[in-house]
């Protein structure tokens, strides 16, 4: 079998970009992640079941595997064994064998969660150490020293002076700066982790970007000034009829902003990865269609484009972190702003 005929001649970019219950260290192998379920059964009530891996969960005889593409339910040990040996069990949906119990919540670890945790760990390691440097006086009473301190200080000052202060104002920015810094560096680290070998992009998961956007939403609404709410529920300075038309729009506007935040980040990061994987996939597609010689011929073109898109991805990693943060600052800034209504709108 040729080296170019990977995965039975199929190369599925979407599958690689999507979340999974394992870490892919191809070609070394896969590491299955723990499965955690909160179950409820008629007889036992609520229960927590933790398994070391999907394989363990299936072998425990508590769960059956099911695929969305067909209706077959793999229950018997033999069928499960075949599934596991083929490595297909990782893509299966797990359903309790016992009819009486149901999965209330699937708290299983996923690839993207692992990388989000990794990003958090990296951030804590870097910035707590950096903070200790400042506490020792380096950078506080003396000039900052070293590449790490200078690099991150530049970014911190950038977030403070170019994102927080202009959008939130001098009096309020300090209250929101920790969130903006955390969001910026978390998104940036997640984005960049997707570009390292064996890495995955947590921010190319809509669930994760939605959580981040939800934080902005909650911060925006809980800190909204009286003016902010008056604008939503009784927009000043216009006829009552227009007000009635405007109120639903304003209420929708409250939600469209964070939704746009979530989708923008998700779509940008997903698209970048899909493009990279598709360019790589061109090699296999061409091999399948026209034979191995053409496949090898496509390699330099494909890798050249991949390199170019990779560079673009690094840029996008920074740009999207910046855009998410500055829009969050802008939304919060708009909500906390208090202004007189004599102003034109």
């Amino acid at each position: 079998m040729s080296v170019l005929a990977a995965e039975d001649g199929e190369f599925d970019a979407v599958h690689h970009t999507a979340d999974a219950y394992y870490l892919d260290f191809l070609p070394i192998g896969k590491v299955e992640l723990p499965r955690i379920f909160i179950l409820r059964s008629e007889s036992d009530g609520y229960g927590l079941r933790v398994f070391r891996s999907t394989k363990n969960a299936l072998q425990s005889n508590e769960f059956a595997a099911k695929f969305e593409t067909d209706t077959t339910i793999y229950v018997t040990e033999d069928s499960l064994h075949t599934l596991i040996s083929e490595g297909k069990h990782l893509d299966a949906k797990l359903i309790p064998i016992n009819d009486q119990s149901a999965i209330i919540l699937d708290l299983s670890m996923t690839k993207h969660l692992v990388f989000a945790l990794l990003a958090s760990g990296i951030l804590l390691a870097i910035f707590v150490q950096l903070a200790n440097r400042y506490k020792r006086g380096i950078g506080r009473t003396s000039a900052p020293r070293g590449l790490v301190q200078n690099l991150f200080e530049t970014l911190v000052i950038f977030v403070r002076d170019d994102i927080a202060v202009p959008n939130l104002g001098k009096q309020h920015y300090q209250r929101f700066l920790p969130y903006l810094l955390t969001a910026f560096f978390f998104i940036l680290t997640c984005n960049l982790l997707g570009l390292v070998p064996f890495g995955a992009t947590a921010t190319s998961n809509l669930n994760i970007t939605a959580v981040l956007a939800a934080f902005t939403f909650v911060l925006t609404q809980t800190n909204g000034s009286k003016d902010h709410w008056r604008h939503v529920f009784w927009p000043p300075g216009m006829p009552v009829l227009v007000k009635i038309l405007l109120i639903p729009t304003e209420i929708m506007g409250l939600f469209t902003k964070p939704i746009a935040l979530a989708i923008r980040l998700f779509a940008n990061l997903t698209a970048g990865h899909l493009v990279i994987l598709s360019l790589i996939g061109m090699i296999f597609t061409f091999t399948n269609l026209f034979g191995e010689a053409v496949g090898y011929g496509v390699v330099p073109i494909s890798l050249g484009f991949t390199l170019f898109v990779m560079c673009l991805e690094v840029l996008i990693a920074f740009i999207q972190a910046y855009i998410f943060t500055i829009l969050s600052a802008l939304f919060i800034g708009m909500a906390i702003a208090e202004h007189s209504h004599s102003e034109a709108h």
Binding site: L130, A131, P178, T182
Partner: peptide
């Protein structure tokens, strides 16, 4: 995770750094 990260960084990193 994110809430924990936010609180930890605010307490142990952003506070000292921005100050």
């Amino acid at each position: 995770v994110f809430l924990a990260l936010l609180l930890l960084l605010r307490r142990y990193a952003w506070g000292p750094i921005t100050t």
